[in-house]
Amino acid sequence: MNLDGRLVLVVEDEPIIGLALEDMLGDAGANAIIAERVDDALSIVEHEKIGAAILDVNVHGVRTYGLAERLGRAGIPYIFATGYGDLSHPTEFADVPTVTKPYNLQEIERALTAAEKQ
């Protein structure tokens, strides 16, 4: 996926990881918008023109599958990013491209490209 000029929603509750991802995406020419909570993310999806999204599966103990479903309906390509233990998703999200932490820009780009094709 060409990230240049896209607005990418990052849902991540760990500020340091969020900042690093913001920098990575910035290097690829994208603008990142970080949400630490699911309700903030939902409000961003409502009001901003999001071009892609990267979701941590578990933010402050809340799963982001509900948000994923909302993104799917809106036709916004998205991927999951996880630490450990969240590699198996519910059936309806089984095919969503997933990157595991720690990740780099190439992995993110590759996963987003796969998500765009789905």
Binding site: D13, E14, I16, G18, L19, E36, R37, H60, G61, V62
Partner: peptide
């Protein structure tokens, strides 16, 4: 820098 950006972001909070 990164440090100042981190400080600005504030505490990681579920609220």
């Amino acid at each position: 820098g990164f440090g100042t950006r981190l400080i600005k972001r504030g505490l990681s909070s579920e609220r």
